[in-house]
Structure formats: C-alpha cells, structure tokens
Simulated assay, not measured.
Amino acid sequence: MPALTSPPSLLPLYARAAVTGPLHRGSALPGSTYTLADQTVDADHLVAYQKVCGFGVSDVLPPTYLHVLAFPLSVALMTEQAFPFPLVGMVHVANSITQLRRVRSDETVSFTVRAADLRPHAAGRQFDLLAEASVAGETVWTGRSTYLRRGKAADDASKEKKRTELAPQDGPLALVRVPDDIGRRYGAVSGDRNPIHLHGLTARAFGFSSAIAHGMWLKARTLATLEGRLDDSFTAEVAFKLPVPLPSTVAIAATRDDAGWELDVRAAKSGKPHLAGTVRPVAQPG
C-alpha cells in the first residue's frame, strides 16, 4: 500500500508514461492502494478551479474538486509497470461522484485510490478507479472513474451496437461557450495535460480533428449550472458521449423530477450528445 506524504508530481509521471507505455503487460489490475493523508486546500488553487469551471467563489468545495485532488494518485497507479495498459490511449467514458456532505476549504482531507473491476467491453476492456476522501476518519466523498482501453473485444463481451434516435432536449437550457483555450486552462488547474486537450496539432496526432474539452471539466461546468439547487449529499453520475471540439457551444439541459435531476448536454447546433447523467439524493441512514 503506497502511502504518500505529498501529491505525486504529474509531469514526471506523464514523462514516464510516454517512455514506458509499451512495457505494460498483463491481464490483471495491480492490488495497490495509494493513500495520501492530511492535505490542506490551497485557497488560490480552489478559486482558480471554481472560476475555470463556472462555480461561484466560495469556501465550500465544488463536488468535482476532490476528484482533481485525488487525480495525481490515480495517475501514479496507472503508470505502475504492473498496470496492464499504458496511460496514453485510455478513454474516460463515465464518472460517478457521491458527496456525503459539503466540505469546506479549511478542512484537512485524506485520500485513497485503487483500481477495480477489470471487465470486457464491446470495444476492448474497461476498469474503474475508485477514490475516497475523508476528514478526521469520516468518509465525505467517493468517486468512480470508468476507463476504456480500446482493443480486441473479449469473447464474452457483447458486440451488438444499437442506434437509438435521441429525443429532443427537455428542460431549461443554458448555452455555454466553450473557448479554444479551455483545455489548456483546465489542464493547468487540474494537472491533466493530456495532449488531446491542449492544441489542435497535438490532438491530431491522436486522431482528433481538433483539441477536445476534458470530460471532467464538462461535468463540473454542468453541475455549476445547478449550484445552489443541489442537496448537501447526492450522487452525480454521468456518461461521456461524443467529445466536445474546441471551440464550440454546448446546450446544457437539467430536468427536475421526483428522483432528482436528469442531465443532458449536447452540441448547440448539431444536437450531438456530449454528456448524459443524473443527480440523485443520497439516502440518509435511519
């Protein structure tokens, strides 16, 4: 169980991933659990994150902020040589976070991260990175990031792909302009400097016609439209659909029902889907 005393630096990890990527082998996830105890929140970093994601400046952490603080541990785990896949080329396809209570910027937070549930997928293989944040021994937040490694599908993976026609967007819409530099701005705050998000030239090297927005920026920007209307505890679960090319404009729809919120983010002009998800309250014990 690697117990870290400070967050790992991401640039050396990315450099190592670029060099050692082809050396990853194996068919099982490593059993490592990374821990990082007693981290304080940097006020300037928090404000920068809130601004780039569209949240109001506050001493309450946005629900997606703890994902950013746990992210370096995830990268450290995924760059272990025992990890079965190289970091470059993995696709973040879904994310779920559960906020069990609001966390303030003056609280000290500890993190654990581990990998779980390697499974077949019609386009390759999937796995989850599970993160947990605690304050004074109390779990306050959990996250699950699902990644896809494209490749030959396993024999027991369903290869059937069904095309369904999207219904019209429902609910109040927020039109959000996504600027050309949002990948670089979010990357500077989050540490996620994947080249597909930074410049059109580097994105084209990986098969994209332009740079694309980070999925977790889009999730954060979507939840920011609901700021002040969410409960203290909830689960926000999303699937990332088609990438958001930079620059562009997206239409964010959030519909309230008895179960919570339905989220639907699409391209403003074409209607192509970018994100779909839900926000549901967490059942309180007793």
Rank of each mutant, 00 (worst) to 15 (best):
A28S: 14
Q126A: 12
A43L: 11
W217K: 00
S209L: 10
F206D: 12
T222A: 04
D170W: 00
D156K: 13
S210T: 15
V19P: 12
T278Y: 03
L4D: 08
T40E: 14
T255N: 04
P243C: 04
F127N: 01
R193Y: 07
T79Y: 08
G54P: 03
R149E: 13
H197T: 04
G31S: 12
V91S: 02
T139Q: 10
F234V: 01
P243D: 08
D231E: 15
D192M: 04
P281S: 04
L66S: 08
L198Y: 03
I252Q: 00
H67Y: 14
H199M: 09
E262S: 14
S134Y: 06
A251C: 01
F71T: 09
L223K: 01
F206Q: 15
V282L: 07
P172S: 03
T33S: 09
R101N: 10
G286P: 09
L13R: 08
R102N: 12
F240S: 03
P30K: 05
I212C: 01
E80A: 10
G191H: 06
A211K: 05
L46P: 10
A94G: 01
T225H: 01
K219I: 07
R101Q: 11
L100H: 15
Q81Y: 07
T112I: 04
T139V: 15
A48N: 05
K152G: 13
A82Q: 15
A220L: 10
A211H: 06
P12M: 05
P22Y: 08
S9Y: 08
L230H: 05
E160Q: 12
A283I: 12
D59A: 13
A157M: 06
L66E: 10
A15W: 15
C53N: 09
N194A: 06
A254S: 14
R266I: 03
A28Q: 14
G54Y: 03
A28D: 13
A174F: 06
R280V: 13
L263K: 00
K241S: 11
G187T: 03
T108Q: 11
F85R: 11
A236T: 04
N95G: 00
Y147L: 15
H24D: 10
S190H: 05
R144M: 07
S145G: 14
A283M: 10
G124S: 07
W141D: 07
P247Y: 00
H274D: 01
S190G: 11
A236K: 00
L230G: 06
S6N: 12
P2M: 12
D155V: 13
V57A: 15
F234W: 02
G26H: 08
K159I: 11
Q169I: 08
W141Q: 05
P247S: 02
L226T: 04
G143Q: 09
V75Q: 08
H214I: 02
P273W: 01
L226M: 03
L118Q: 11
D117I: 03
K219V: 05
S9R: 14
R280G: 00
R25G: 12
T255M: 05
T33D: 07
V244S: 01
R256N: 01
D156T: 13
A48Q: 06
M1H: 11
W141S: 05
D180R: 12
F206W: 12
D44E: 14
F83Y: 15
G228Q: 03
V41R: 08
